[in-house]
């Protein structure tokens, strides 16, 4: 993240953003991974992940955020997230039913438990995170194009 005074907000905002944006991203991933144990899950975590990128974009201007996640990459990842979710659901056919939880359930309150639910959460997290970011990006690009 170069410090280019031409784009984005003031130095204070940029410094704080540089410190916090990683933490926000990490927190989002934490929420996604613990979706089956505590409140939160794919959607909430995905929104937080998206917010970390939005934060970056607001502070440093559009170009830096786009250099991290371009619009094409975002829309491709979104499709991949959706297909991942669908294929997890289809895996249930192996056990005989759509959306059947075929993986071993494990013991409750462990991180690796609850069968396919954490996998679903990850898929949703990817989809929501990049999807929301793509919406934001599209609106910003739309506004700039005038």
């Amino acid at each position: 993240m170069r410090n280019n005074p031409e784009t984005g907000m003031t130095l204070i905002v940029k410094t704080i953003t540089r410190l916090t944006v990683g933490l926000i991203l990490l927190f989002g991933i934490y929420i996604i991974l613990h979706g089956h144990l505590s409140p939160g899950g794919g959607f909430a975590g995905g929104v937080i992940v998206a917010l970390s990128f939005v934060h970056l974009m607001l502070a440093f201007g559009k170009d830096i955020a786009v250099s991290r996640v371009s619009k094409n990459l975002a829309s491709n990842l979104e499709s991949i997230g959706a297909l991942m979710f669908l294929s997890i659901a289809l895996l249930g056919f192996l056990g005989g039913s759509f959306f059947l939880n075929i993986l071993p359930k494990g013991t409750p309150f462990n991180l690796f438990s609850a069968g396919i639910i954490p996998l679903c959460n990850i898929a949703i997290g990817i989809k929501v995170g990049v999807g929301l970011f793509a919406i934001f990006l599209a609106l910003v690009v739309l506004e700039r194009s005038k």
């Binding site: 829309s75 659901a89 289809l90 759509f98």
Partner: peptide
């Protein structure tokens, strides 16, 4: 796999088609 397996396919097929198209359609 019995006869009723056909029912969810009415949702699965168009959904899979939609996201496959958006993924590979550009390339």
């Amino acid at each position: 796999m019995n006869n009723t397996t056909i029912i969810p396919l009415f949702v699965i097929i168009p959904l899979a088609a939609a996201f496959l198209i958006s993924l590979v359609g550009k390339f």
